[in-house]
Each structure stands twice: as structure tokens, then as C-alpha cells.
Amino acid sequence: MNMVRTAVPLLLCGSLLTGCSSLPETDWPPCALIGGVGGAGLGAIESSSWAAAGLGLGALTGAAYCWVHGDQDGDGVVNKLDDCRDTPKGTKVDEKGCPLPEPVAVVEEVVVAEPVRVELDVKFDFDKAKVKEESYGDIKALADFMSQYPQTTTDVEGHTDSVGTDAYNQGLSERRANAVRDVLVNQYGLSPDRVNSAGYGESRPVADNATEEGRAINRRVEAEVETRP
């Protein structure tokens, strides 16, 4: 009978203290009080003279238990191991109860490729838009380059010298650009949507139109290659 009388309060007190371990720090005084009451009850089992001593000892035991096994901020790390006992609720912590470092976002640098001007040695006879045989090598080199880099497109630009009216030279420059485009698409297999053509007439000379040599240089087709998004 004595064993039963002693064991039941002990189990009750142990259960209460275990429950106290999950309480926040603000609730530890009630926890200590519960421990004191349990201690007083245990003392009273022995004799009435032990009740007061049991009350004090139980209170100390309850408070100590809460400190050792309690989790003040509810982060899953008990106080005796927690170096950061005021961690906000829901914060991920390490084994010492301190917040884990925030992951650093990796920002991928986006490089925007600048258009590349390709020097084509495509020249035309006066008032002609027919591609000369000696110009096919440069046109093929451009086609081969673009075939290696399928994401590229090209703008083929036609030009004239200053002889003739602006309107006539505009149309002539467009025909020259289209002639080179046809070679790229029809003979060297580039997709039509990768080759654009435009004419600029006599508006962009690169040599002096006052001389025959300069005018011959200005009767040309150039190309600009860029990477499409």
C-alpha cells in the first residue's frame, strides 16, 4: 500500500513536469507552482510535517525542469541548447536554435549580343543588280557562318553610287539586296525568315562619289548579323 501511495503522486508529478517542458517561459511560474503542489502532496504522503518542505522542493524542481527541458521560442531546440531563445515563430533554425542564413538568390547574367557587321565584297556593275561570279565566295562564307549558329539572322543592305535620281537609286539598291538574299536562300539553303533585305539608295556612301573608283566601291551590298531573341 505504501508503494502505491508513493508511486501514484510521483507519476502524476512526472507527467505534469513533462507537460511543462513545452510551455513558453511566461508559463513557467504556473509550472513551478504545479511542481510545488506535487511536491507538497508527496511530502504529505510521508507526513504532514513534510508537506511544506515538499512544496518548496517541488517548486524548485518544476522550475528547473522547465528551464532544462523547455522550449521558450518553440523552435524545436530545448533552452539549455538554444543560443537564440527569441527566434520568431516559424523561422528555420540550426542545431543551436539560431536562424539559418537566407539562401542567396543566383541572378543569371543576360548578355545581349550586339549586331555584327559582316564585310561582304559584293560589288555591282553600273546600273546592274546581278551578283557577279567572284562575289559568291563571300556570300557562301556568310551562309556557312549562319549555318553554324542557327539562332542568327541577317539584314542584307543594298547601296548605289550617286549617279541617277534618288528614287531610281532606291529601287536599284533594293534589287541588289534582294539578289544577294536570293543567293543565300535559294543556293545556300538559309531559311527565308532568317534573311531580311533592305535598300538605302545613295544615302550611305563609303567612298567619294566624285571619282569612278569611289563610285565602284559604293555600288555594294553589306550584311549585318545578329542573334535573335
Rank of each mutant, 00 (worst) to 15 (best):
V221E: 11
G158S: 03
P192H: 15
P192C: 10
V110R: 14
L142Q: 02
L81F: 13
E174S: 12
S21A: 08
E222W: 13
M146Q: 01
V163F: 05
A40R: 01
T87P: 02
R215Y: 10
N209H: 03
G14H: 06
D155V: 05
L42P: 04
A198D: 10
Q170F: 02
P30K: 04
N79Y: 09
A44C: 12
E95Y: 10
K123H: 12
V225F: 04
H69E: 07
S173Q: 05
N169M: 10
S147Y: 01
V118S: 06
R204M: 10
M3S: 15
L172T: 14
P24Q: 04
A113P: 10
A141H: 11
K92Q: 04
S135A: 09
G164H: 03
V106K: 15
K80Q: 00
C13D: 07
K89T: 15
P9G: 03
L100F: 02
S162H: 03
V4D: 11
G39H: 00
K80F: 05
E95D: 08
E224H: 11
E212K: 13
P101I: 04
L60I: 07
T165L: 03
P29T: 02
V106L: 07
D161P: 01
D193R: 09
K123F: 08
L57W: 00
T211M: 11
Y200H: 07
A40P: 09
S162M: 04
T165Y: 00
L57H: 00
N196I: 15
T61H: 01
E213D: 06
D75F: 12
G74A: 13
S162L: 07
E213F: 05
V206S: 04
V107R: 09
P29A: 03
D94I: 02
E224A: 14
G39C: 08
T61A: 07
L17G: 09
G158W: 00
R181W: 06
R175P: 06
W67I: 05
S21H: 10
G19K: 03
G38N: 02
E133L: 09
F126G: 14
Y168E: 11
V111Y: 07
C31L: 02
R220T: 14
N218M: 12
E174D: 14
K132E: 06
R175V: 13
R117F: 06
E102A: 04
A210L: 11
V118Q: 09
F126W: 14
Q187P: 15
Y136A: 00
N196P: 09
L33C: 14
A113M: 09
S203C: 15
T87F: 08
L120K: 11
G54C: 08
V122P: 07
T165D: 00
K89Q: 11
L142W: 01
R194E: 04
M1D: 10
W67S: 12
T154H: 14
R5C: 13
E202Y: 10
D82N: 00
S22F: 09
E134A: 08
D27C: 14
E202G: 13
G137A: 04
G201E: 03
S15E: 14
A44G: 15
G43Q: 01
A53L: 05
A167Q: 05
C20F: 06
H159S: 03
P88T: 10
G19P: 09
P229L: 11
L55Q: 08
